[in-house]
Amino acid sequence: MFKELDPILHSQLRLAVMSLLIGVKEADFTFIREKTNSTAGNLSVQVQKLKDAGYIDVVKQFKDNYPQTTCKVTPEGILAFENYVKALQEYLKVGN
């Protein structure tokens, strides 16, 4: 019996964001946008979905009068990501 792939993570941009955040302590919205080659609007929506799922923490603050959004993966996010990778590996084992 295969585990179902987490629908929150099985989306290209959300998975890219999570994969990026998993390797760093925290990252600025601009940094994520640059690395994922996404638009600000699309990224905002996906970041919000990850936040609603409890996979990331989002901190909004002002720095030198400019808004700054910082994202950080939560322990729940790490667990979900690990489970997603394990499920992927199972699919690929059978595929081979």
Partner: peptide, 25 residues
């Protein structure tokens, strides 16, 4: 990067690897 494009398990793993590499580099 499109939001809801269909992608395979293999592509998922490739995406994860490439993003982790980007973060590290």
């Amino acid at each position: 990067m499109p939001e809801e494009k269909e992608f395979s398990e293999q592509e998922s793993l490739q995406l994860i690897a490439s993003m982790i590499k980007k973060a590290k580099g």
